[in-house]
C-alpha cells in the first residue's frame, strides 16, 4: 500500500441524489481533512453518478471516486464491499468515514475486517488528534449508559458515524473538485446472498424518520389498543407514531415502529413519549429531538431526565384530554 493520506467518505445516492447521510459525512470529513491538511474524497457507487458527484463537490469533497459498474446499480452489500475493498487498497486513505445506516451497519465491520483494521462503531463524534494525526471517536457503549473514546491502531482508521448527529454544510456550487472514474472488476457470483422477496410493513402516512412530530408509546401502555389513541393524536399533530423496544417485543406494533439504539434514530422537533420509562437504549434513538415531552406515571422514570416538559400521570387520563385540547388549540 502507498502511504496513507486523506479522508475518504463512503457515500451513496438515493433516487439519483446524494443521500442526506453522505452530506452529513462530508461535513464531518471536511473538518477532519482540514485538521490534517489533507484531501477529502468521497466514493460513490452506481451506474450513473453525474448528479451526486457534483453535489458531493458542492457539499465539500475535493475528489469524487465514481465507481461505476452495471452490477452496482443495486446496492448489493457484497458487491459494494468488493468495490470499496479495492478502492481503499488503491487510494490508501488515512481515515474512512461510513454512515451507520441500515446498509452501513453491515458494510463497515465487513470492510474493516477485510482490510484487517479496526472500526469505531456508531460514533457520535469524530475528531483528529493533531499531535498523533489519528482519529478520536466518541461512541456510546452499554446501551448509551456510557461513552467510550477510542482510537484505532491501523490504517485506514474507519469510523461508522451515526446518522443525523452532524449537520451538512451549506452547499456551495462554485466549489471546484475532481471526479475520478474508478473502474472495478465485479462478477455476479460475488453476490452470494440474494433477496427473493420484499415485504413492506410500514404504517400509512408520514414516515417515522421524516416526521417533525412523533408520538411514541411504551411498555406502560399495556397492550396494542392504546396505540390507536396515539395514532389519532399523531394524526392531529401531523406526525407519526413510534414505539419503544418493549412495545415491539410484546408484539403490539411492527418492528418498523421501534425507536432506539437498535431501531430508528429520529430527530423530530417534538417527541412525545407516552408510558416510556426512558432506558438509555431508547434515548439513543431520540436524544437528538429538539423538544421531548414525557407522560409517565412514575415520577422517578428516567425519561424525565431527558425531557423538556413532563407530566406525571396516568396516560389514560392525560392523553385524551391532551388530544382534545390540541384539537381545540390548533383548529384556528
Amino acid at each position: 500500500m502507498p502511504e496513507a493520506t486523506g479522508v475518504l467518505v463512503v457515500g451513496d445516492s438515493i433516487d439519483g441524489e446524494l443521500s442526506p447521510t453522505s452530506r452529513e459525512l462530508l461535513a464531518v470529513g471536511r473538518r477532519a481533512a482540514d485538521d490534517l491538511g489533507e484531501e477529502l474524497a468521497i466514493s460513490l457507487l452506481g451506474d450513473t453518478l453525474d448528479v451526486p458527484s457534483q453535489q458531493a463537490i458542492a457539499f465539500g469533497a475535493d475528489k469524487v471516486y465514481a465507481v461505476t459498474h452495471p452490477l452496482l446499480a443495486e446496492a448489493q452489500v457484497e458487491l459494494s464491499l468488493a468495490a470499496l475493498d479495492s478502492l481503499c487498497r488503491e487510494a490508501a486513505p488515512r481515515v474512512v468515514l461510513i454512515g451507520r445506516t441500515n446498509e452501513g451497519r453491515e458494510l463497515a465491520p465487513r470492510l474493516a475486517f477485510r482490510l484487517g483494521v479496526g472500526l469505531a462503531q456508531d460514533c457520535l463524534e469524530v475528531s483528529i488528534d493533531q499531535e498523533t494525526r489519528t482519529l478520536l471517536a466518541n461512541r456510546p457503549v452499554y446501551g448509551g449508559n456510557a461513552v467510550a473514546v477510542v482510537s484505532l491502531a491501523y490504517t485506514p482508521q474507519i469510523a461508522a458515524v451515526r446518522p443525523k448527529v452532524y449537520e451538512p454544510a451549506d452547499p456551495d456550487s462554485s466549489r471546484q473538485g475532481e471526479v475520478v472514474s474508478f473502474p472495478v472488476e465485479l462478477d455476479d457470483s460475488q453476490a452470494r446472498s440474494r433477496v427473493v422477496n420484499t415485504v413492506q410493513e410500514e404504517a400509512e402516512g408520514i414516515k417515522l424518520e421524516d416526521a417533525r412530530i412523533v408520538v411514541s408509546g411504551g411498555r406502560g401502555l399495556g397492550g396494542p389498543e392504546p396505540f390507536q389513541d396515539l395514532e389519532e393524536l399523531a394524526k392531529l399533530l401531523g406526525g407519526a407514531v413510534g414505539a419503544s423496544r418493549a412495545a415491539v417485543d410484546s408484539g403490539w406494533v411492527p418492528a418498523s415502529y421501534q425507536v432506539g439504539l437498535t431501531g430508528k434514530t429520529i430527530t423530530p422537533d417534538l417527541y412525545i413519549t407516552v408510558a416510556i420509562s426512558g432506558a438509555s437504549q431508547h434515548l439513543a434513538g431520540c436524544s437528538g429531538s429538539k423538544v421531548i415531552v414525557a407522560i409517565n406515571k412514575d415520577a422517578e422514570a428516567n425519561i424525565f431526565k431527558e425531557a423538556r416538559y413532563g407530566v406525571i400521570g396516568d396516560w389514560e387520563q392525560v392523553v385524551p384530554a391532551f388530544a382534545e385540547a390540541v384539537r381545540e388549540l390548533t383548529q384556528d
Binding site: 474493516a112 483494521v117 479496526g118 472500526l119 469505531a120 478520536l136 456510546p140 457503549v141 448509551g144 449508559n145 456510557a146 461513552v147 467510550a148 473514546v149 477510542v150 482510537s151 484505532l152 491502531a153 491501523y154 421531548i292 414525557a294 407522560i295 424525565f304 431526565k305 431527558e306 425531557a307 423538556r308 416538559y309 413532563g310 407530566v311 406525571i312 400521570g313 396516568d314 389514560e316 387520563q317 392525560v318 392523553v319 385524551p320 384530554a321 391532551f322 388530544a323 382534545e324 385540547a325
Partner: peptide, 29 residues
C-alpha cells in the same frame, strides 16, 4: 486494533419543566 482512551458516563443537563393540573386530564390540557 482498537484502543480505549477513556470511558465516562455522559452528563444529562436537561431541566424538565413539570406540568401539573388538578388531575390527569387537567394536566393533559
Amino acid at each position: 486494533r482498537v484502543t480505549l482512551r477513556n470511558l465516562f458516563i455522559p452528563v444529562r443537563e436537561q431541566q424538565c419543566e413539570m406540568v401539573e393540573g388538578e388531575d390527569g386530564a387537567d394536566a393533559g390540557r
